[in-house]
Amino acid sequence: MKVLAPLNNLEHIDDYIEAGAGEFYIGFFDKEWSDTFGDFADINRMSGFKEISNPYDLDTVLQIVKAIKAKGKEVYITFNSSIYSDEQLAFMKRYFEHVKEAGVDGVIVSCIEQVILAREIGVPSVISTISGVYNKDIAIFYQEKGTKRIILPRDLAIAEIEAIKKAAPEAEYEIFMMRNGCSFSDSNCLGLHRKERCSICSSIKHAGKELRLKNNDFHSKNTAELNDMIYNNSFHNYACGLCGIYDFVEMGIAACKIVGRSDEWQYICKDIKIIKDNIDLAKRCGSKEEYLDKMHFPEDRVMMCKLGLSCYYPEVRF
């Protein structure tokens, strides 16, 4: 199982690789796309943050792809907005042609129309969580369409992931591992990730708090406020799936993902290293129990692990 890291800082590619990254994903911002389709038409899920999350243009990304491939690592480019029009898909065709020529390992896509387009161009497709592969039937559908990899939703349990993989074993599978959790399903979220807070999660998080409680006493208000603070700080900002690594190594998951195209490179490197260390440990352990006894924990173990509110896969410990 490889560590898949977001790449938003060219100066530190070698630092990521030294920490243990085996794969990268990257998006780009294209002014021509925005001029053609408007500011609210996204190329990928993070287009609303423009250069903050996608700091490079297409030409630069193509050079990055070649540089990463020269270092013997894999790289994927994101084209996973919630929706595309026929005109946008036609425009996207030239993007796919360019990234194929650069040698990209796959395009991360969100709909069957993109899978078909990628197949026509001859570039591998990776199914985003936007497609909502929640069961074996959806996985089999995309597997039969020739997709290279399926990214499974962050709210699936380990047993559900194993069942899907067994039912459609020809595709590779990618799961979430660290950072940036979300309480909502990508495939059922019609909001956009933007500074204007068009997404449900961001709108709720930044809204003025109006607590409507049956008992309007100090204890009730304090408990509700604490609950809100813990969930926002512990899961949305920093989720963790380290406890599940032994299971994923055993079932042959291809990659585990670090979310955070807007995060600082130092924190990404820390996550890469602890994941890689735990993957190597899991391969040496003879049982899940041995792995859990010896595993490397995140720095804020008491807050994150004891409450269980930061867990991608809480069933391992609870």
Score class of each variant (00 low, 15 high):
D277S: 11
F29Y: 15
A139L: 07
N44K: 09
G181P: 02
V133M: 03
K145L: 13
L89T: 05
E101C: 07
D228N: 05
Q88Y: 00
Y95F: 09
N232H: 01
H98D: 15
Q114E: 11
I112W: 11
A139P: 01
F49H: 09
R45D: 01
I52L: 14
C243P: 06
M303R: 12
Y84Q: 11
C111K: 08
E113H: 14
E290C: 06
I158F: 00
G38V: 00
G72A: 03
Y134M: 12
V75H: 03
K166T: 03
E210G: 05
N8Q: 15
I204A: 04
T60P: 05
S220C: 03
C311M: 12
C285E: 05
I272E: 01
V123S: 04
I164E: 09
K288A: 02
C240L: 08
K257Q: 02
L190S: 11
D280G: 11
D263S: 15
A67L: 13
V123G: 06
V115Y: 08
V104F: 04
S47C: 05
A163Q: 15
E32T: 15
K214V: 15
C269A: 13
Y76G: 10
K283M: 04
Y246V: 02
D39P: 03
C305M: 14
N180I: 14
V65P: 00
R197Q: 13
D186V: 13
K148F: 11
M229E: 03
Y95T: 12
K209Q: 11
D217Y: 01
Y56F: 14
Y173C: 04
K148D: 13
L213Y: 01
S53G: 15
N135S: 08
A255D: 07
I116H: 14
M303N: 15
T129G: 03
E196I: 02
L117C: 04
G191R: 00
L192V: 05
D263N: 14
V107E: 06
G20I: 11
L226Y: 00
D228W: 01
S85V: 06
A157V: 13
F29L: 06
P55S: 01
E101T: 12
H12V: 12
D30C: 14
A167Q: 07
D280M: 09
R149M: 03
G244P: 05
V249N: 11
I127C: 02
D59V: 06
I138W: 09
Y312E: 09
K257N: 00
N216H: 10
E113R: 08
G103W: 01
I164H: 07
V123R: 01
A157R: 11
V126Q: 10
N233W: 09
E196Q: 13
K257S: 01
T223F: 04
K270W: 07
V3F: 08
E264M: 14
H193K: 14
K273Q: 13
S287P: 05
C201P: 06
A157M: 13
I83R: 14
D86P: 03
A70N: 06
D155Y: 08
F49Q: 02
R45A: 02
L192C: 07
P169L: 10
E289G: 12
T129C: 04
E160A: 11
K214G: 15
F29Q: 13
G191I: 01
C182V: 04
E97V: 09
H98V: 12
G191H: 00
Q143F: 12
E162D: 12
M304Y: 10
D293H: 11
A102F: 00
E87T: 08
M251W: 09
G252F: 08
L309Q: 09
Q266F: 10
